[in-house]
Amino acid sequence: MRLASISVDLDSLPHYCRIHGLPESLLDARARSLVHAVAVPRFRELLDTLGAPGTFFAIGEDLEADTLASSGMRAAHEAGIEVASHSHAHDYALTRRGPAAILEDLRRADAAILAATGARPEGFRAPGYTLNADLYAATVELGYRYGSSAFPATPYYAAKAAVMGALSLMGRPSRSVLDTPRVLLAPRVPYRPDPARPYRRGTGSVLELPMAVTPALRFPFIGTFATTLPLRTLRGAWRSCRRDAFFNFELHGVDVLDATDGIPGELVRQQRDLRVSATRKLERLREIFGWLKSECDVVTLRDAAGRLSATL
């Protein structure tokens, strides 16, 4: 039976301010904690309805700074949800920091997740999906079972480049980083990377589980698009991936939030999917989760890596 995984990146709202070149002072204490206080419970309810586990990618410094985030991840872990690493500081330029700084960041994230959940993470997703040889080497040294950072989605890459260029012209540069175009040639299915060039196949020990993109056009099937595009478009994208042995559905905490949750208007105007009601988003995700449940064995990314590794 085909495998599928549902994962959620728990990027808090300050990171969205950084993406859009907005001051973090826009956010009050409640807004800063919305992802863990509101989005995590909503995702847990969705997963409970599905009757399948998921994977939460937590940011280490959030767990250290917010007791609600820490206790929420412990409760999620105890309920069978995998808690994996999304780095310590979610530094979009992490790949540019050099081997020692990268390794230290990942070690700090591991320690924060271990303290929160009692278990060391076995998987990693890079901030901004950006991977390079130094970062891959750090995941190998720390003994991760898998990484899930490659996102070879041509439309997403083009849109990101355009937005970053526009923000720069407006004098409000994004703190996000545009990855090398080589990512667009990365395999769209699970693979073992070349440690020196991790967007190519090789013999690396840490398995790579790319985010779901369609064949040919490499259209991204992630939460932002799943909650905003017409259902007919999504059905077509889902059907085009039916030959794949594994489907990696990636979401973010904001994919179940909207403006009425207490997000500042300046951020809502920039992050347009926040204008879609959370109720509508949840209804859409229930339907898509149902597609996965009906055709796939839905497992954590850790379990998917374990089952796929022998075939690769």
Rank of each mutant, 00 (worst) to 15 (best):
R2T: 08
L3Q: 04
I6M: 04
D11G: 05
Y16D: 00
H20G: 01
L26I: 03
A29Y: 02
R30H: 14
V40Y: 10
R44M: 11
R44S: 11
L46P: 01
L47W: 10
L47N: 05
T49K: 01
T55D: 04
F57H: 02
A58H: 02
I59W: 05
G60V: 03
G60P: 00
L63F: 06
E64Q: 01
T67W: 14
A69I: 14
A69C: 13
G72S: 15
R74Q: 12
V83M: 10
H86S: 07
Y92T: 07
R96W: 10
A100H: 14
I102V: 10
I102E: 06
I102C: 06
R107A: 13
R107E: 14
R108D: 04
R108H: 02
A111R: 03
L114K: 08
A115S: 09
A116E: 00
A116S: 04
A116D: 02
T117E: 13
R120Q: 15
R120V: 15
R125V: 12
R125G: 12
A126H: 08
Y129Q: 09
L131F: 03
D134E: 10
L135Y: 11
L142N: 05
P152S: 00
P152G: 00
Y156V: 15
A159Q: 15
K160P: 04
A161V: 11
M164D: 12
M170W: 09
G171K: 03
R172C: 13
P173W: 00
L178I: 13
D179E: 15
L185V: 11
Y191C: 04
D194L: 07
A196K: 08
S205T: 09
E208K: 01
P210R: 00
V213M: 05
T214A: 06
P215G: 03
G223L: 02
L231Q: 09
R232Q: 08
L234N: 06
A237I: 08
C241A: 09
R243F: 14
A245G: 14
A245N: 14
A245D: 15
F246C: 06
F249L: 08
E250L: 07
D255S: 04
V256W: 09
R269H: 13
Q271G: 02
D273E: 03
S277I: 11
S277R: 08
A278T: 08
A278M: 06
L285E: 10
E287A: 09
I288H: 15
E295P: 03
T300C: 10
